[in-house]
Amino acid sequence: MGSYGQAVIPGFICRLCSKQKKIVIHLYTAKAKKLDLLNKIRLLPISLDKYDNLPKTVCESCIEKLNAQYQLFMRIRKSENIYMAHRRYHTNGNCPYECPLNGADLGE
């Protein structure tokens, strides 16, 4: 019988960090769906295929990092939408009342 260090258990390897972990979430389960893992991972520059031979699990540490990255992405997307709306409201250089940035504190 081999040692634990030599064992390779594909179900416990994280798809993102490639580390062997005791606690992982399978990407195609109800819990992963509730956490929206597939959509968050699709923002990364990797390809996901349900039928490839790569791990289908993600560790808790990577999920935390993925959530932080997703929050940053969503904040950037929201800011970009606000700036685009801001540009549409300006024709004479003044910031009208209807502008989403009128009186906004952008230092948050």
Rank of each mutant, 00 (worst) to 15 (best):
residue 3 S to E: 15
residue 3 S to F: 06
residue 5 G to M: 15
residue 8 V to C: 06
residue 9 I to T: 14
residue 9 I to Q: 14
residue 9 I to D: 15
residue 10 P to T: 07
residue 11 G to M: 07
residue 11 G to L: 11
residue 11 G to P: 08
residue 12 F to N: 14
residue 13 I to D: 02
residue 16 L to I: 12
residue 16 L to T: 04
residue 18 S to C: 13
residue 18 S to D: 13
residue 20 Q to F: 10
residue 20 Q to V: 12
residue 20 Q to P: 07
residue 21 K to P: 02
residue 21 K to W: 08
residue 22 K to S: 04
residue 23 I to M: 02
residue 24 V to A: 02
residue 24 V to M: 04
residue 26 H to G: 13
residue 26 H to T: 10
residue 26 H to L: 08
residue 28 Y to G: 05
residue 28 Y to F: 13
residue 29 T to D: 02
residue 30 A to S: 08
residue 31 K to V: 07
residue 34 K to G: 08
residue 35 L to S: 04
residue 39 N to D: 13
residue 42 R to E: 15
residue 43 L to H: 12
residue 44 L to N: 01
residue 45 P to I: 07
residue 46 I to T: 06
residue 48 L to H: 04
residue 49 D to H: 13
residue 50 K to S: 14
residue 52 D to S: 09
residue 53 N to G: 11
residue 54 L to V: 03
residue 57 T to K: 03
residue 57 T to R: 04
residue 58 V to C: 01
residue 58 V to S: 01
residue 58 V to R: 01
residue 58 V to W: 01
residue 60 E to D: 03
residue 60 E to A: 06
residue 63 I to F: 09
residue 64 E to T: 11
residue 64 E to Q: 12
residue 67 N to C: 11
residue 69 Q to V: 00
residue 70 Y to C: 05
residue 72 L to F: 00
residue 77 R to C: 08
residue 77 R to L: 13
residue 77 R to K: 15
residue 80 E to G: 06
residue 80 E to F: 05
residue 81 N to P: 01
residue 83 Y to A: 09
residue 84 M to H: 12
residue 86 H to C: 07
residue 86 H to Q: 02
residue 87 R to E: 15
residue 90 H to D: 10
residue 91 T to F: 10
residue 92 N to W: 07
residue 92 N to M: 11
residue 94 N to I: 06
residue 96 P to L: 09
residue 96 P to G: 07
residue 98 E to V: 06
residue 101 L to Y: 02
residue 102 N to M: 11
residue 104 A to N: 00
residue 104 A to E: 06
residue 104 A to S: 03
residue 106 L to I: 10
